[in-house]
């Protein structure tokens, strides 16, 4: 991955966000390089989800900057933000599939909204994307008929349908069994290799993070406290990082 460091795809600078009295992000700084897979780890309530939703413009931060390909996005209006979002695809934690639509319509949603392709072409494209995530013959099922792991795959197929430059993964392995989780990890690695995307995943699954990350950043109490390769994180002298990656309940991080 060295040598690609020169191009910064996403840069987050001093990001602050609070909800009511609760300060969630307290000055997050993060750089994500072109083509790399960045994984943000952190405990529940550390602000991971808020961070990823700020990056795709679902939540507006109070202070700070987010630059995507150099363009500052926190001050954009709805229409400009819409254009920026075309660079993104996002896998939601529980899939967030449209439950009134069949699987292929879910995957083809972006194409239907933004292109003038015929229904057959959209369906064909949806089948290709589904094949890419290892699914076939599910086109005509409804989302409620799918298992948790399949929902995540369909959601991933929908996220890559418009061939985005950046993929965001919200807890990709949460809520599915370990074997399925590993299959999703493999898919994420494949996506990076096949589609050459830049990706940001948030997770508290450290095993998943080691597998999919080029670099890992740890978010704690609304700040990034450490960034490094999986190897560097594993050997980090920071006691909080150590506690998290080893999954111990005693240590500097107190459980509320």
């Amino acid at each position: 991955m060295q040598g690609m460091e020169s191009t910064i795809k996403i840069r987050v600078v001093h990001l602050y966000k609070s909800f009511g009295d609760k300060q969630v992000l307290r000055g997050v700084d993060l750089e994500v390089w072109q083509g790399e897979s960045m994984v943000v780890i952190g405990g529940s309530g550390s602000g991971k989800t808020v961070l990823i939703k700020c990056i795709i413009g679902l939540i507006r931060p109070e202070q700070g900057e987010i630059r995507v390909d150099g363009l500052e996005i926190t001050s954009l209006n709805a229409k400009e933000m819409n254009e920026v979002r075309k660079k993104f695809g996002m896998l939601f934690q529980a899939g967030a599939l449209f439950d009134s639509m069949k699987v292929w319509e879910n995957v083809g949603f972006g194409l239907r909204q933004q292109t003038r392709l015929s229904e057959e072409e959209i369906r064909k494209n949806a089948s290709e994307k589904l094949a890419l995530v290892g699914l076939k013959d599910v086109e005509d099922l409804m989302p409620s008929e799918l298992s948790g792991g399949m929902r995540k795959r369909v959601s991933l197929a929908r996220a890559i349908a418009m061939e985005p430059e950046i993929l965001l993964y919200d807890e990709p392995t949460t809520g599915i069994d370990p074997i399925m989780a590993d299959a999703i990890n493999d898919l994420i690695v494949q996506m990076k290799e096949k589609l050459n995307v830049t990706s940001i995943a948030i997770t508290h699954d450290i095993k998943s993070a080691y597998k999919i990350a080029d670099r890992i950043a740890m978010l704690y109490q609304g700040k990034i406290i450490e960034v490094g390769t999986p190897e560097e994180i594993r050997n980090s002298p920071n006691p909080m990082v150590q506690q998290f990656v080893e999954g111990r309940s005693e240590g500097p991080i107190k459980i509320l």
């Binding site: 795709i56 939601f92 967030a96 449209f98 972006g110």
Partner: peptide, 17 residues
């Protein structure tokens, strides 16, 4: 339901208002 299951967020991410 679409709001709490993030389907409305998903619409935004698919560049649909």
């Amino acid at each position: 339901t679409m709001r709490v299951t993030e389907q409305i967020d998903a619409l935004y991410t698919l560049a649909t208002n």
